[in-house]
Each structure stands twice: as C-alpha cells, then as structure tokens.
Design a protein around this nucleic acid. Structure first.
Lengths: 200, 200
DNA sequence: GTCAAATCGGCAAGTTTTTGCCTATCCAAC
DNA sequence: GTTGGATAGGCAAAAACTTGCCGATTTGAC
C-alpha cells in the first residue's frame, strides 16, 4: 500500500537552518523517491506553504528567525491538519511537550539519521494519508469555501477514513470504534465521498 | 450534555512510588479541594481504576512494577477518554514523545511543584470537562457517538478558539476568517463553552 | 442452491442546527 | 447625551442531520 514510487509521492517541506544538513537530507529523501522542498528558516517555510502543496512538514525546533513551535502554530493555521515532525538537538522536555501538544506527529533527536527520518516519513504518510489527501482537495477547491464548515467536514472525512484504514475497511469495527450509528456513518461516507477500499 | 453528578470536584488518581512525595502532593491537592486517590505503583493504580470513578490520572513515568507508558496503555484500555498527566525526573525525549503519542495531556518534570501541578490539573479539568462528563455518564446513557462526535466537537472548538486567538478576540474578524454566520458562531461558542477573551 | 453475516440505501419521523429579523447592551467618539 | 460600531441573544422558519425500519445485495461457507 505504501508505494513510494507511484504518482502518490508526498510533498515534504524540510526546514533547517543548517544548509549542509538540509541539503544532505533533502538529497537522501529525494533519492528515496520523495518530493522534497526545502527552506532555511520559518519565514521561507511559511512562504513555501503558500506557494506549494505540502503534505508533511519536517522542521528543526530551533531556528534563527523563529521558534519552531511558533512556526508550527502559524503553519497549522494555514493548514490545520498537516502532519508536522520536529527534530532538535537540544530539546528540553518542555519543548517536546509543547511540540506534541501542538499536534506534532513525531519528534526526532539531532543528529537525524536519514534512514530513520525516511522510515518515520513513510509511516506518517501511511497513517495520515487520509488527512493528506483531504488537505490536497480541501485547499484546491474554491477557496471561498475553505471555511469553518469545510474544515470540519475535512476533519470528519479524515477521521472516518483513518478509522476505516485502521480497521482494514471493516465497517462494523469502525462503527464500534467511532461509536457512531451505522446509518449515520453511511450517510456521512456518501456525503463526504468516502469509498470503502478493503484489500490493500 | 447533562451533568449527572452532584459533586463538581474531579477525582484525581495520583501514582508515585515515592511515598513521601506522594503523601505531600496528595495532601496539597486535597487542601486545594480536589478529591485525590493515591497509588504507589501501577498495579495498585489499575486496581483503583476498577474500584473508583477516576477523572484524571497523574503518574510517574518510572515505577518499580511497571513502565509508566505501559501502565497508561492499560489504563486507557479501561477508560479510553481519561486524561493522563505524566511526570518524571529523568525523562528522555523518547519517553516524552511516547507518552504524548499515547495521548498524555501534559508532562511535568520532577520535582513537581505542587502549585504547578494544581494549576495544570485545574486546566485539564476545565479543558476536558466534556470528556470527564462523558466518562462519568458512560454507563448511564446509551452510548451515543461519543468518539466521533466528541472529536469533531473538539476540533470545532479548536478551530474557533485558535481563530479567536489569532484575531485577538475580535468576533468580526473570526466571522470573516471562518466564513461562518454570526448567529451560528454565537451558538457554537455557547454550546462548546467558549468564552471570548481579549488579550491583555 | 441455501443460509448467515455484513453492508447498503430508500423512506419518513424525530432532532438539531442554521439563520434572518429584530431588539438590547456596551463603549468609545463627538 | 447622542451616535455609530461591535456583539449578544430571543424567536421561529427553514435546512440539515440522525436514525429506526425494512428490504436488497454481496460474499463465503456448507
């Protein structure tokens, strides 16, 4: 199911102020087949976010122009569901807690092992593929509808899709997990355009 | 959502293998008006969970009889929505990440300042009011779509609160940003218990 | 072929949410 | 004190959503 080679490749935004490391990691990830954009600071990164369609953000916690947490907060306002992965060399427990509370999906310690990073990214891509997909569409469509309602719907879609995926397409399990009425789930799936895909 | 309980005080389960610290903290929290149960290890704690109605778990990460993470996992199986707060003196980034991924609501470093702990607990109690209420009534009311619905509501709350914060409490701006009807926003804020707080 | 389990979807009643209209406050500027 | 802007909230109609009932379809086992 995780096919890095398909047209489904995730767009990664890699943010690090150390140009050497940044370049090296980007190269590695690209070789692995990922679509990587780079930014050397929060400001640049935020700009990339507006210009491109990004699926996952990977960012240093410490940056010269802004705190990583602060950056994540801003990024999240632009794309509420985007998975953010932090890394840092001098992380305090507080930092990690703050990052995770903000919804970081993972936190790596520097120096980052590229293999490890790749593995985590693939996992994230897998886990969040619902969110990633919806993000892409939610922000493509008429931007005057990118409002409260569409975000909530997007989130509902993400919840259902990820639960479906988690339970391998078995509706019965999803019903129990989400504690939702079958009829309601059916309705929502229809409305949100969710199709059940059983086999992986 | 109705409040079935008469007592408004949250039941805290405080888990720590250091009896002195445990006693001191429990005393402090009790004086502050909280309803505190104590346990000196994971095994005891799990038993408390079966015997009593607990609203929040506060546990050390390192315990003689079990890893805190492991304990949290088991506790969560018994009460999926319960907020868990960890503390630890020797926390590695990995531990913190693991704990937060497991859904810890907070993570404090040892030695724990009782004032700090109390403040966090009150915040948690406030934030998770919905979850706590749901938990308490879980047995009475025929389960409605707790999981799905409450998650969606939490997301709505998050969206509104962050937009409010972003626009410094100006409702007008939030209306534009979220593209939501004023009346609807008012309704939702009431329903979700959001209070407008301007900065300063 | 038949049976049971899992799922789907039409229909309609029951509920909840959304919203327009209108009035009331609060506050700062005149 | 009056005025205008921002915000709240009552009310009720309209719209949207939920959900039970019931029959249909699919799939795999026997």
């Amino acid at each position: 199911m995780s096919d890095v080679t398909s047209t489904e490749t995730a767009s990664i935004l890699l943010v690090d102020d150390d140009h050497d490391v940044l370049g090296a990691n980007a190269r590695f990830l690209r070789i692995a087949g990922l679509d990587v954009l780079i930014a050397d600071g929060a400001t640049t990164a935020l700009q990339r976010l507006t210009e491109h369609s990004i699926d996952i953000i990977v960012t240093d916690l410490r940056m010269p122009d802004r705190n990583g947490i602060e950056f994540a907060r801003e990024a999240r306002q632009m794309q509420p569901l985007i998975p953010i992965l932090f890394f840092s060399g001098f992380a305090q427990v507080n930092d990690v807690v703050a990052a995770m509370k903000l919804g970081a999906v993972d936190f790596l310690e520097k120096p980052v092992d590229p293999e490890e990073l790749l593995a985590r990214l693939l996992t994230i891509k897998e886990t969040h593929r619902g969110a990633i997909a919806l993000q892409r569409t939610a922000f493509d469509i008429a931007d005057d509808s990118v409002a409260f309602k569409s975000r909530v719907l997007a989130y509902e879609k993400y919840l259902i899709e990820s639960s479906l995926h988690q339970h391998d397409g078995r509706i019965g399990c999803v019903l129990k997990a989400l504690k939702i009425n079958r009829r309601t789930l059916n309705e929502k799936m229809t409305r949100l355009g969710i199709v059940r895909t059983t086999t992986e």
